[in-house]
Design a protein around this nucleic acid. Structure first.
Lengths: 124, 124
DNA sequence: CGAGGGGATAGAGGAATGTCTATATTTTGC
DNA sequence: GCAAAATATAGACATTCCTCTATCCCCTCG
């Protein structure tokens, strides 16, 4: 906590510079956390990459064929990605096709853009 | 909206184009998932931003003052961020200072760079 | 219509996660 | 040396998450 009693090192306060980063607003934070959470699973990350790295929508049957988890598990992961706005689904007859979605990655880019490119200067 | 989906006749295979995205290697995927998981929590995300948006290292006492969770919880979150390589710690006397770390964000940038730009645009 | 198949949903179980209180560790002032 | 203060660690506990099997829904074809 900010030292209110100068008990230790009175000439050496722990934190001089005032806070600079402001917290995100609740909706923006929710969206960003949802996108991060959706990608923070090995299987889901690979599913997302399989969808995002393709110009054409990807058939679910292809995804289920490429991973070792069961078909309902794939379906569950696709739902998570869908609710995060990272992918969208369209149906063609019996099959379902997934394509990159509109949401999520933009806020991720914003997060990276506000952070410095590399570790900043050393401690004084 | 979705560009040229293949005509799917009933007896046609569901997916004609061959897979193009190859999975990440295990170490790269592990690092990336660790960074994503570390940021995929509202409290931790704000802690990271508080650290990353500052040129100078941030004192833990300031972080604990700014959040509503208990001090051990802050300490736990800082440990998660540390293990993901997102922040580093340096001690000065009794106090601990956190600064942006070398790892994690780079792989995140790589993930975004390999994804097509239109996949990340916000809904207009 | 009925059969068959792709995909989504339901429910269950075990592992991982986030939070707390209590305690340990380390450093400084007296 | 001793007490106090800043962080870290240790358990404990509730919640969320990931996976599975079983089942349902809907579409197409014979």
């Amino acid at each position: 906590m900010i030292p209110r009693v100068k008990r230790i090192a009175s000439s050496d306060p722990c934190c001089l510079p005032p806070p600079r980063g402001r917290p995100l607003r609740a909706p923006a934070r929710r969206r960003l956390v949802a996108a991060l959470k959706a990608l923070a699973d090995p299987t889901r990350l690979e599913i997302f990459r399989a969808v995002a790295l393709r110009p054409e929508p990807v058939c679910v049957c292809e995804i289920t064929a490429r991973f070792r988890v069961s078909q309902p598990t794939i379906s569950y992961h696709l739902k998570v990605l869908r609710r995060a706005g990272l992918v969208t689904v369209s149906r063609r007859g019996v099959w379902a096709y997934y394509a990159p979605g509109p949401g999520g990655l933009a806020s991720l880019r914003a997060l990276l853009d506000e952070a410095p490119k590399e570790a900043s200067g050393p401690a004084p």
